[in-house]
Amino acid sequence: MNGTTLERPDVAAYVDAVRSRLADLPAEERDDLVADVEASLLESGETPKLPPQEFAAELREAAGLDPAAPASVEGSPLDSLRAWVSSERVASWRATAGELAPIWWLARAYVAVVLLAVASNQGWPIGADQQYNEVSLEMSVFALLIAAGFSIWLGLRGRREARSHRRLAVAANAVLALALLPVAAFSLAQLDYGHLGSSAVYVEPVPGLVLDGAPIRNMYPYTRDGTPLFDVLLYDETGRPLDVLTGPDDMSRRILDTVNGTQLFNSFPIRYFEAGTTTVARPELAPPITVPKLVTPPLEVGLR
């Protein structure tokens, strides 16, 4: 059976444990030995019966290499570090990290895209820093998908092939890992700011009455048989007077007053005086409508 260590985490863990037992060898020697072992285990479809440390010892002996030096109690700090890196505990951590690597591949893709978007003055989501462009969630998601695909491809390639650019890969991953927390904090801040909550830019509220974003200039009530009504007072659901906000400065508007002299701005339809006069030339003027045929539902619907 063939495959990759991504599909066989048991093989990945075993190979990592063997690699840790060869930590004292030159990197090229170790990588070549482990690459042969990894490829063979993947093809055989099973892990060897020997524990990793015995497998590594047999491998060393057969390859004519010196046996692994026992961990020195009084060694230098570097020796202690090497021994710790070779320990089974670290091997187990590395195996677990190997299994979780795909999560990191996705995270680093996100970090890289955000860093690039911010560095290119696009902001995040893409377009957030552009004064005249709208935030493009679609573009942002597209960039993330491309980056995620590339990152996964790199990750799989790194597992499958000899680590030809290992140092470069380690450095790039380290930079992205360092940027992970700042980018996460930045993204959360953006979320609070509202960039991620909606694909629309912030729109200044239009004062007065609005229908589909356009201000309403007048309203014409009719009875059910199509007769226009005049000087109808309109209120919203909380009892607030509806006002189209033409304002008191609109001198040609015919404004109703209360007996106390208070002006009412919620009487509809609004009618206007002829220019320079105090006469409404066509007081019955109303937009032509088609009266619909109505079916009156009962005011109380009972269940039978």
Binding site: D32, L33, D36, V37, A39, S40, L41, E43, S44, P48, L50, F55, A56, E58, L59, R60, E61, A62, A63, G64, L65
Partner: peptide, 27 residues
Amino acid sequence: YGYDVLRRLRASGLQDVGDASVYGTLR
């Protein structure tokens, strides 16, 4: 390659040859 050599050795009758021994010997 490694696993191929191991398989052919086993097919020749050396059933108990160890994986690590073969890979190490090749190296």
